[in-house]
């Protein structure tokens, strides 16, 4: 992607992030105890989880396309999305840990959703390490595509873990009646706005990372 096309996207992502953070800190009221002020972590924790899902879904699509027709661009897309997905999975885990400490009394609990998310991070870290090891380009891409496709199986397990197993993590009913932790309507609206903001940020990082892959291919061709 050309820099001229990337600049508006990067500016939009930056402006949206600033507006989002302003709303989180200066517009949103505190939640009911014990969540108080620290509940605001939800506005980065949930969107980063959504981006992790989205990023690894893109890895799945790119990997399948690469295996079907050997498209290099689809391979770049899968590789780029895996890298951004690992970043957002790490953000999701770290923000969750910081939020857990004041509420659960511990940064980490080996409960199903947390453990499976950690496994997801390890799978895609392995994917990136495998790709970084080099070797025959075509073979590496095909094996990486298989890892990218099979790794996606973890996502539904993570998503439904809160329904299938009893753990510390709140259920999916944050925005539905009867949940463990209820948000006011304006908080839900802000949460969805932050999901949109993070999606723009993901698109920006993905475009930057794909441009990097294109430049690397250009250099390889020159050599």
């Amino acid at each position: 992607m050309k820099s001229a096309r990337l600049t508006p996207l990067a500016l939009l992502a930056s402006a949206a992030m600033l507006a989002g953070v302003f709303a989180i800190f200066f517009v949103m009221p505190d939640a009911e105890p014990p969540h108080g002020i620290v509940y605001r972590i939800i506005f980065i924790h949930v969107p980063s989880a959504w981006i992790a899902y989205l990023a690894f879904a893109v890895v799945l699509v790119g990997s399948i396309a690469h295996l079907r027709n050997g498209s290099k661009k689809m391979d770049w897309l899968a590789h780029a999305s895996a890298e951004v997905g690992v970043l957002f999975t790490a953000i999701c885990l770290v923000t969750g840990m910081v939020w857990a400490k004041p509420l659960w009394g511990a940064f980490w609990v080996w409960e199903p959703r947390l453990t499976l998310t950690f496994v997801l991070l390890l799978i895609y870290l392995g994917y990136l390490v495998f790709r970084a090891m080099g070797g025959d380009q075509e073979r590496t891409s095909r094996i990486a595509a298989v890892i990218g496709i099979t790794g996606f199986a973890t996502i539904p397990l993570i998503h439904f873990a809160v329904d299938w197993y009893r753990g510390h993590h709140p259920g999916r009913a944050v925005i539905r009646p009867g949940g463990d932790f209820q948000l006011e309507p304006e908080m839900v609206a802000t949460l969805f706005a932050m999901v949109a903001v993070f999606t723009v940020l993901y698109a920006t990082l993905l475009a930057l990372r794909i441009r990097l892959a294109g430049t690397a291919a250009q250099l390889e061709a020159l050599r």
Partner: peptide, 10 residues
């Protein structure tokens, strides 16, 4: 402080 750490790390 926990909130600051979370946003800072992001």
């Amino acid at each position: 402080q926990y909130l600051g750490i979370a946003f800072g790390l992001v």
